[in-house]
Write a protein that binds this DNA or RNA. Structure first.
Lengths: 189, 189, 189, 189
DNA sequence: AATGAATGAGGCTTCATTCAT
DNA sequence: AATGAATGAAGCCTCATTCAT
């Protein structure tokens, strides 16, 4: 069975994305997992600690996975973009938009931690920028004359916004959404 | 000079977008504007009233303006898209992402109010869907075989995400961002 | 009738001397005065604010009164000592040993406030040192060859310890205690 | 090397004198000694047990030592006073004012324990009263017509207050302070 | 001898709100 | 139009303690 700690982290991700950091109380978390408030503190020391644990839980895994895609020398830039979109959308579907959580809520972290996570966030974004660069090099027209950072932000905006409106019971599956996003971006018909 | 009420609404938009509804307290708002907590309540009756005022302040104006664009029979769908992007980005730049605020925080409204605002929100989105439909009719390839609702969400995602990362002192002006977004979506080089 | 604020300060002095700062809770204070915990915070902003109010309430009055004794040019040093002992013992009897509270608990104040109060405390002690200096000048033998600061500390020790053991229903009245303290110090029989 | 138990008692004395009983937590104690909270409880059963251990550690030793001074038939009362002052000041310097801890904090002990320790405390004070009685008998003038209990309290006040202001790096050594206290009390020049 | 998991009670504080002015 | 007094509910956190290991 899943450890209390893991169940807490999962519940925290779910709640904080849905209700925002400030809108999520330790009591809610405790109730969700079926333990006492004190036990939540026992594991995370403080509310900030919960956010920290989420981020610690997210970035190492996500960056690693994305990096293997980006560093793969045998596939094209557009294929990498396609794979990234699948990866990111799966992430959004599974654990909500942890990335937006990162951006929106790192303000609640102490200076030191905030720096670390901003850095990791930039690293994550940087990997997507690399994909765009590769596309700009390989393709004749896609993303030509575009600011690569802006394209990256556009892509993340598209994907992350999904957290807000996506419902599993809706008409489109997560992979269909990823497909269509890919088509929109790559100008496929 | 701006009325106390107007200063309160502006401050409320700023704070609630930055810190989320739950993360913004009446005390903060009072301090920001330099009046007492009691006076804030005096104007809005309750915290929910503040959110209400923001929405009331936003939708009628925004919907009206967007509608004149959409209903204009003499311009093409792509041109409408371009104009919408300018309009939306200006909105985001000026008063932050009120739309995301709407989506994220209407949960704090009482049932009746929530319904009203969800409806207005859908109306706003619907206007953008109409633009996409016009494009699908006119153009040979753009947005062909795409779910028009998904395209709409993709566009809003792109635009609204700007609130999170856009800094006026950054390298791109708001209208340049709108331009590039238009190019990305319309597959212009 | 006494204001809520004044009643709170009096109750706080009483409780904090009896139970120490850490041992006194805002809830106790509220109950003692018959109001809610929130109201205590309403007046003092924080627990530290209570300590601050006590000190602000004590020092200006005490220093002023002691200063008029010390600056009186027409009375002898020993007479000043006698008067100080009466004054200090009355203080101790009335409002407990606020001075020891100051010394013991200023650690709970923020740096800035702590400095201010340490300074005032030194000023208060300094006035007693002046009395001892006058005695050393006038008298042939009393306090000769003694460290004036140590004598001062000895006197305060004697007086302040009273808070711990003095009971109004005990065999000695406050003025009798002051009298005997004076005799012990001045070597009167 | 010192046993964990002994290190805990030492740390507890230090912390509780500095921060008061209520202001000292088991967690602090654990951290100070570098072990876990559970281990502290393991040794003392409860927080009250810590106070108990301190007192048990203090009184038997202190009373025994003071008694040998008081019962010594071959020395004068004033000499006994002098020796007591040395003894008491050394105690204060070494382990802080455990006596004041006793008076201030025995309130936190259960009824039975409180009785025992109040009794021991009275016994300790009684030994000093005996010294004063001897002085009143032998000397012609010292402490004549004074309430012997009040004199005792005055002496303890002087000595115990030292805990609050004494700093090893200050201008006076512990034995010099004892000397001057003796002179002040015995009216020596 | 020593510890981690878990908790209930309580402490400080924030907060939205009511009321009287 | 604006505010201070007062509060109940809730939030974060500390703490002493129990239990199993």
């Amino acid at each position: 069975m899943e450890s209390t700690y893991d169940r807490l982290v999962s519940a925290a991700i779910k709640l904080m994305i849905e209700k925002s950091y400030a809108g999520t109380s330790i009591g809610m978390l405790a109730e969700e997992v079926g333990i006492s408030k004190s036990t939540v503190i026992h594991y995370f020391k403080s509310k900030e600690g919960i956010l920290l644990a989420i981020l610690e839980n997210f970035f190492p895994v996500a960056i690693k996975e994305l990096r293997t895609v980006v560093n793969n020398k045998s596939i094209s830039g557009t294929e990498k973009l396609r794979r990234f979109l699948y990866f990111q959308m799966k992430l959004v579907a599974e654990s909500g938009d942890v990335l937006t959580l990162v951006i929106r809520e790192t303000r609640y972290l102490g200076e030191e931690h905030r720096k670390i996570y901003n850095q990791r966030h930039r690293e994550y974004e940087g990997l997507v920028v690399k994909i765009i660069e590769q596309i700009q090099t390989e393709e004749t027209s896609l993303f030509k004359n575009k600011d690569k950072n802006l394209v990256m932000k556009a892509i993340f905006g598209m994907c992350n916004y999904t957290t807000i409106w996506y419902r599993p019971e809706g008409p489109l599956r997560i992979d269909e959404i990823a497909d269509q996003f890919f088509d929109i971006l790559s100008c496929n018909v």
